[in-house]
Design a protein around this nucleic acid. Structure first.
Lengths: 226, 226
DNA sequence: CTCCGGTTGAGACTTTTGTCACATACAGGC
DNA sequence: GCCTGTATGTGACAAAAGTCTCAACCGGAG
């Protein structure tokens, strides 16, 4: 938890996609306000319902935003990677954090407290545009999640996830455990296990020592729509 | 589809909550750009997947934003009333409309096409703040919808809906059909019928000639959390 | 008053999803 | 190689949600 050296901060921030269009003054102001935090895998950044924890920007690592049911089932809302904002909603409306956040691996983030962020937004209109873009992307993602949860079966959601994983990075085979997939799909591990088994029996996927190989992309896409 | 007389438009816009803080110049610019449309009950304003239909502001009436499954089941995403924005997401990211929109009763709306809206946003930073607020509210609502769909039973969602209806307007008894409730809850009419029946048997609600009366608010809230 | 469309109540049944309980299987650490 | 914690496969069930079908009800329009 240390203030960033100015030049270093500005340089890092420039790499953040949403900040790309900001002028030097704005960048400098943002970097002066940001505090860098570090979290180990599994560390909780903040909890849903707590007072606004401020604006977060991922520098490096991976953070999951999630909700828990009373019985302890987890729904992952979104995974945030380098250069992405999160918790804008609480910052902007002043309400409590709408979700919980946990590092899924060693991560470094910048935090800007709510008051500071609000001032920055009024001083630098270009920053507003950056936040608007981030919010719009967030909203579009949530709408698609609502559609999936309400109108698609678990197997269809699973097929979609496999497709997304595949095109996300053809190389970086960050393999998810079935438990992680289940949390993203809003179901339980067993359903994922059975879903994968079915896809394998139908010849749509194949397992190469625990890595999933897509044999029939067409078929998978067909599954994904229903 | 007619351009608004300037003074009238500005006056109406001033009543829109999100525009409350705008100065006269901004209001004037917005009103000059807005075109008023009228839709009868059941009319479709735009469809999901079509190219951005522009920014919409409800003047009067009620518009539902919804998604349809391939089998035709409907999930209502949000109901928009007087003074609320919608379709900001498509306007801001330039993508297709993320949902469909239909008037649930005779409605009048203002429409601002995407290019115009983008120009307005850069010219009037205060307008950006208004859009940000609207987006944040939208996102918070969607997060709660995701939570409900993924982590709550249909009966819990129903209980929540009854509570929301009750405090929405204690007087205006806009009564929903079971079909409409089902579409909001992401389920089918029969489930709503049974859910209501159960609540009645448990003495939590009562029917006063098709109007629902809450007898045990506590009990209802208990149902709503599980 | 009567007819008619939209709405509601209900039973029987199917499908989907989630739970429980174990048996393997696998990857490192030692 | 042997342990051990995590990850996975699976069957048997239980519960939740959805489908199908029909009867009954209700509130205007004519």
């Amino acid at each position: 938890m240390s203030a960033l050296a100015q030049s270093r901060a500005a340089e890092l921030l420039r790499a953040v996609s949403y900040f790309a269009r900001l002028d030097a003054a704005a960048l400098e102001a943002v970097s002066r306000s940001a505090v860098s935090h570090h979290y180990d895998r599994g560390a909780v950044l903040f909890l849903e319902g707590d007072p606004c924890a401020g604006m977060f920007i991922v520098d490096e690592g991976r953070v999951k935003l999630y909700k828990l049911s009373v019985e302890g089932r987890e729904q992952v809302v979104k995974l945030m990677g380098t250069g992405e904002f999160f918790n804008e909603v609480a910052v902007l409306d002043g309400g409590p954090n709408p979700v919980s956040a946990m590092a899924v691996r060693k991560s470094r983030v910048w935090v800007i407290d709510r008051n500071t962020m609000v001032q920055l937004l009024t001083r630098f209109p270009a920053l507003s545009l950056a936040v608007i873009e981030s919010l719009a992307a967030h909203a579009r993602h949530l709408l698609s999640l609502v559609e999936d949860l309400s109108l698609r079966t678990v197997s269809a959601r699973l097929a979609k996830l496999l497709i997304a994983q595949a095109e996300g990075r053809p190389e970086a085979p960050r393999r998810l455990t079935q438990q992680e997939m289940a949390a993203q799909l809003g179901t339980v591990r067993e359903m994922v296990s059975r879903g994968l088994r079915n896809l394998e029996e139908e010849g749509i996927i194949r397992f190469d020592r625990h890595r999933i190989v897509i044999l029939d992309r067409e078929g998978l896409e067909r599954k994904a729509m229903t």
